[in-house]
């Protein structure tokens, strides 16, 4: 049965109001926190916010989310929450990257998840590896894999480097500091095989003509515009792995599903068992 959005019953109305109230408190706390001086407090607040959103997703609040998504609160605050989440995710990666470089961990011949110091990248690495197996990409003959918004910590690049034999893995980021750190981390392990390279570009300007697979991470913004650019410049049949939010995850992450470029087919989607804010969409363009 379809939800009639213009009619909301008392139970759902109460639920939406409760969620909005909680989120307002988070917003106010985040706004009153200096991102630099009070970095630990900010990171902790973001962890709590994400845990709260996991909780909402876990409770299977699909029906409540439908109403919430159409509320003025969601529309007015989505930009704020996705902006701070993007900042949080990239800083989290930068913290790990600086730790790795300053401790010289990247030079100790450590591969895979053992390379990382903190728990967060280890979990991400495992997640990417599991997804890879599920997709069977390790068994396919791809030549060029483009990973967008690589960030300072190239977790996805490393997962694909370790688990596949793809000869060319290109990390694309518009941020030069991120490329420097990601490059420094993979430089040592890339010495012999030279499979990893980086490109300093915005995903909206990059030319995807040689790519066989393109990966769009969860915190990438303007996903639909990126997909339009891929549809415009990539070869027919290109495969796109795009992370897109699940339910309340839409408050923190940009969705790729609404208004998807008509050139793309949705081949499948992969959801992980553990509570994650997003799922992996597997898209491809028509080979024609």
């Amino acid at each position: 049965m379809k939800t009639k959005l213009n009619v909301i019953d008392g139970k759902h109305y109460e639920a939406v109001l409760r969620i909005q109230k909680e989120l307002r408190i988070y917003k106010s706390k985040i706004e009153n926190t200096d991102l630099i001086v009070e970095r630990s407090r900010f990171m902790k607040l973001m962890e709590e916010l994400i845990a709260y959103i996991y909780g909402l997703i876990n409770k299977n609040n699909q029906e409540v989310f439908k109403y919430f998504k159409h509320s003025s609160f969601f529309q007015e605050n989505k930009v704020f929450f996705s902006r701070v989440n993007c900042y949080y995710a990239r800083v989290l990666e930068t913290i790990e990257a600086i730790d790795l470089i300053s401790q010289g961990n990247h030079k100790k011949n450590k591969f895979g998840k053992d390379l990382f110091i903190n728990e967060y990248p280890k979990i991400l690495f495992e997640k990417s590896t599991r997804e890879l197996k599920e997709l069977g990409i390790d068994k396919k003959q791809f030549q060029e894999f483009v990973i967008l918004e690589t960030g300072s910590l190239p977790v996805t690049i490393l997962a694909y480097f370790v688990a596949t034999k793809i000869p060319k893995i290109i990390g694309v980021d518009s941020n030069q500091e991120a490329i420097y750190m990601a490059g420094e981390i993979t430089r040592n392990m890339n010495k012999k095989e030279q499979r990893i390279s980086y490109s300093h570009f915005s995903p909206l300007d990059y030319n995807y003509s040689k790519a066989d697979i393109v990966y769009i991470p969860s915190y990438a913004r303007n996903k639909r515009k990126i997909l339009d650019r891929i549809a415009k410049t990539a070869k027919d049949g290109v495969m796109v792995l795009c992370r897109t939010p699940v339910q309340f995850g839409e408050l923190l992450l940009d969705s790729a599903e609404v208004g998807l470029n008509p050139r793309f087919f949705k081949e499948c989607e992969i959801k992980m068992q553990k509570p994650f804010l997003d799922k992996l969409l597997v898209l491809s363009t028509l080979d024609f």
Binding site: L35, R39, V91, I95, N175, E177
Partner: peptide
């Protein structure tokens, strides 16, 4: 406006001085 730059510079400054005179903003 670059989160990596602001994070690196704030960490770098923190590692050499502790002062309320400097404030970095993203």
């Amino acid at each position: 406006n670059n989160q990596e730059a602001i994070h690196i510079s704030s960490e770098m400054i923190k590692s050499i001085i502790n002062t309320p005179r400097i404030e970095l903003i993203h």
